[in-house]
């Protein structure tokens, strides 16, 4: 919801406001995770680990709706629209390009809001497993969520057998987005 780059502000100030905008967005993902049926039956350790490795990817899916691939613009929740060129000045160009591509592909699938929410649940529980203790429990939860997503999508589009596989193909895209960007972008934390 925050504006990005009014000319008068230094890039550090812009990064500060960007980082501060991020905090509520992350907290919303945490609340979303707790609402996923079965997520809170996982151990607290595994819940934290999944969130740490999956939150950036869930945010990328959520931010897709802000991106207009045709117009190459980003509209923040406060209604302010920025062109790709003006955002490039912030030095996030490779992430922005990747986001435009990703949102174009995901947008073209035309998911309903509830399908998108279920997809985000799948994204979260499909996140990197390296810190997970009870892998079996996470895999079972992932399997159930994927089954639910498949039946929701196929029940609405019985004659379209390509949509579900195309959707699952977005998971590796998200993992690449995450690996390329989440540990590069810098954030400022003000104590």
């Amino acid at each position: 919801s925050c504006p990005v780059a009014p000319a008068s502000r230094s890039s550090q100030e812009v990064w500060e406001s960007f980082s501060q905008c991020f905090t509520p967005a992350v907290k919303e993902v945490v609340e979303f995770a707790k609402s996923i049926p079965g997520f809170q039956t996982l151990s607290q350790h595994d819940q934290v680990m999944l969130l740490k490795s999956g939150t950036f990817q869930v945010l990328m899916v959520r931010f897709c709706s802000l991106f207009d691939p045709k117009e190459r613009t980003v509209t923040f929740l406060n209604g302010q629209t920025y062109s790709l060129a003006s955002l490039r000045a912030l030095g996030m160009s490779s992430l922005l390009d990747a986001m435009f591509d990703f949102s174009e592909k995901l947008g073209s699938l035309g998911l309903e809001p509830d399908e998108m929410a279920l997809f985000m649940a799948v994204v979260l529980v499909s996140a990197d497993r390296s810190g997970i203790v009870e892998v079996g429990a996470v895999e079972l939860l992932q399997e159930n969520l994927i089954k639910a997503l498949r039946s929701l999508i196929t029940s609405r589009r019985p004659d379209d057998s390509t949509l579900f596989p195309k959707l699952l193909l977005r998971l590796p895209d998200l993992r690449t987005l995450n690996n390329q960007h989440s540990d590069k972008l810098l954030a400022f934390r003000i104590d």
């Binding site: 500060e16 980082s19 991020f22 905090t23 992350v26 907290k27 945490v30 607290q44 819940q47 934290v48 969130l51 740490k52 939150t55 950036f56 960007h181 989440s182 540990d183 590069k184 972008l185 810098l186 954030a187 400022f188 934390r189 003000i190 104590d191």
Partner: peptide, 25 residues
């Protein structure tokens, strides 16, 4: 005075999540 800590976005996300779970224990 404001003290700034620069970190990766991944660390920033981890910090927020850890704080959230600690607060809700």
């Amino acid at each position: 005075p404001k003290t700034h800590r620069v970190m990766t976005l991944a660390d920033h996300i981890s910090h927020i999540i850890t704080q959230d779970f600690a607060r809700n224990q």
